[in-house]
């Protein structure tokens, strides 16, 4: 197949993936909207091992399934949830094929410009989510994960689209490969952590109202705030060393390409700022008076600096890393 044909195929696969993602997202949303509340117990362990598509945590013995009507509603809702997961797997496969064919078309790893960085980054987010699904019941996160994935892909095809092409010489380096791979994986995990932190903030706010006075809400389908907080922490703690490694690999690359491992180029500077803010987050969790809500705000700020680096710095602030290839 010619390079153009491959690039064309890649684009079509991406559009198909987006369509399937969209349907999956509606199924996740429907499950949240129509499902019955999760057990309210604050001790709900977040370690129930649930295989993809297998019965979710609220079906385990001991959960309160009150009436028959509730039970049928519940089983319908969780069937929707299982459909959503299958669709996510399908969308992921299409999405991954799109990224792969794009790489084949350019004859190099598919992260040479912002379009490719976005599609590959979004793939990482879905990938992390699917891996997490095999280990934990995190189906409740579906909407919150697929929505940003879709937005990113929409932005990529509508604004950032760049023809498949070879790289400028500075980008041809194994260290670039390692650096960008690590950065993409870390950002995928940070994204999931960020989603959980946002859910935590909403849930925490909700829980401050006495249970009797709370109206029904899809938030009842989400785990209690304490569990969300802990899951978010785990995600961040897992991503942080990978991000650290990405920054180190980037420094090694810079040293090979330009003779200095650190030059305060805007891109580097913002990667450092992101690192510092997430450091604050980890420190905050160990500091009395900074746990919980304030730490979650820091997690949000960390994610904001990451987005700033990716959107604003790449496009508006010039630097050595001018690989954006936009416009």
């Amino acid at each position: 197949m010619t390079s153009e044909a491959l690039a064309h195929l890649s684009n079509n696969l991406l559009y198909s993936a987006m369509a399937v993602y969209a349907v999956a997202m509606y199924c996740y949303a429907a499950e949240l909207a129509f499902g019955t509340p999760r057990r309210r117990s604050a001790e709900l362990p977040d370690r129930e091992l649930v295989a993809v598509g297998a019965s979710p945590a609220y079906d385990v013995p001991g959960s309160t399934v009150a009436t028959d009507e509730d039970a049928t509603r519940q089983s319908k809702a969780s069937r929707l949830g299982r459909v959503a997961v299958s669709l996510t797997v399908l969308a992921f496969a299409l999405h991954a094929s799109s990224v792969l064919t794009r790489g084949l078309s350019a004859g190099r790893p598919p992260w040479g410009n912002m379009f490719e960085f976005s599609t590959t980054g979004a793939l990482a987010v879905t990938g992390v989510f699917l891996v997490l699904l095999t280990r934990k019941d995190v189906r409740y996160l579906g909407v919150f994960v697929i929505l940003p994935v879709l937005l990113t892909l929409g932005l990529a095809v509508a604004v950032l689209y760049t023809e498949s092409a070879q790289l400028v010489p500075a980008l041809k380096s194994v260290w670039l490969l390692i650096h960008v791979t690590a950065a993409i994986i870390a950002s995928g995990i940070f994204t999931i952590g960020f989603c959980q932190s946002v859910c935590y903030l909403v849930q925490e706010r909700r829980e401050r109202v006495p249970a009797a006075e709370r109206g029904p809400s899809f938030m009842d389908r989400l785990p209690p705030a304490a569990v969300l907080d802990r899951s978010a922490y785990k995600m961040h703690a897992f991503a942080y060393p990978i991000w650290t490694f990405a920054v180190i690999a980037g420094a090694i690359w810079a040293e090979n390409a330009w003779g200095r491992y650190w030059g305060w180029d805007p891109k580097e500077t913002w990667a450092f700022i992101t690192w510092l803010v997430y450091t604050c987050y980890l420190h905050a969790r160990a500091t009395a008076g900074w746990k919980g809500r304030r730490a979650a705000y820091l997690a949000g700020l960390g994610y904001a600096t990451f987005l700033f680096n990716y959107l604003v710095v790449n496009i508006w602030l010039v630097g050595f890393h001018s690989y954006a290839g936009v416009g």
């Binding site: 305060w264 805007p266 500077t269 510092l276 602030l317």
Partner: peptide
């Protein structure tokens, strides 16, 4: 983190 910002702008 804050101090590093102006140098990028």
């Amino acid at each position: 983190a804050l101090a590093a910002v102006p140098g990028s702008l």
